[in-house]
Simulated assay, not measured.
Amino acid sequence: MMKQMCWLPVMGTTGEKILHLRTAPNQPWRPYTAFPEYAVPDYEIPGGSKGWATYQKLMSARWNLVASMPGQQLKSA
């Protein structure tokens, strides 16, 4: 199983990025919240990154972080 993470901006926001995941090369990137088997609750920090706690968990589980490309956006979270 492929295990990839990427920080992508959400269209309609002022550059806010949230964690997105995919587990197969033919899958589109989806918000981490679409993967309840991997997601953990966000930290309750005002202005904190959405998905940071999940990112930390998955990094320790050896998921790969993929750099986002300029202009790469998703429609909604």
Rank of each mutant, 00 (worst) to 15 (best):
S68K: 09
Y55T: 01
M69T: 07
A67K: 09
G51R: 05
A39T: 15
S60G: 10
P31R: 12
A53L: 11
A34V: 03
G47S: 11
R62W: 01
V40G: 11
G71V: 02
N64A: 05
Y38E: 13
Y38C: 05
Q56H: 12
G48W: 09
P41L: 15
S49R: 13
G51D: 08
R30A: 14
S49N: 10
Q72Y: 09
Y43W: 12
T54G: 03
V66N: 08
G51Y: 07
P46E: 10
S49H: 07
I45C: 05
G71K: 00
D42A: 11
Y43H: 10
A67D: 13
L58M: 07
T54P: 02
Y55A: 07
W63E: 03
A67G: 05
G51F: 08
Q73N: 08
Y43E: 13
K57Q: 04
A67F: 06
P41G: 15
G48I: 07
G51W: 06
Y38W: 11
Q56W: 13
Y43R: 11
S49M: 10
D42R: 09
E37D: 01
A61M: 00
A67Q: 10
A39K: 15
Y38N: 11
A34R: 01
F35R: 02
G71H: 05
Y55R: 01
S68H: 10
R30I: 04
P31N: 14
A53G: 12
V66C: 11
S68L: 03
G47H: 10
S49P: 05
Q56M: 14
E37Q: 04
E37K: 02
S60D: 15
L65M: 13
S68V: 02
Y32M: 14
A53S: 15
P31K: 05
A53P: 06
Y38K: 12
A67N: 08
Q72R: 09
Q72V: 05
M69I: 07
E37W: 00
A53V: 12
Y38S: 08
A67M: 03
Q73Y: 06
K57F: 04
T54S: 07
Y43K: 12
V66S: 04
Q73M: 08
A34M: 03
W52P: 00
A34P: 00
G47V: 05
P41N: 14
M59I: 14
A67T: 12
A34H: 02
Q72M: 14
T33V: 14
G47F: 09
I45H: 08
Q56A: 13
E37P: 00
P46K: 03
A53D: 11
F35G: 02
W52S: 03
W63Q: 06
T54N: 00
A67P: 01
N64W: 01
T54Y: 11
V40K: 07
Q73A: 08
Y55P: 00
Y32C: 14
T33N: 04
Y32N: 14
P46C: 11
G51S: 12
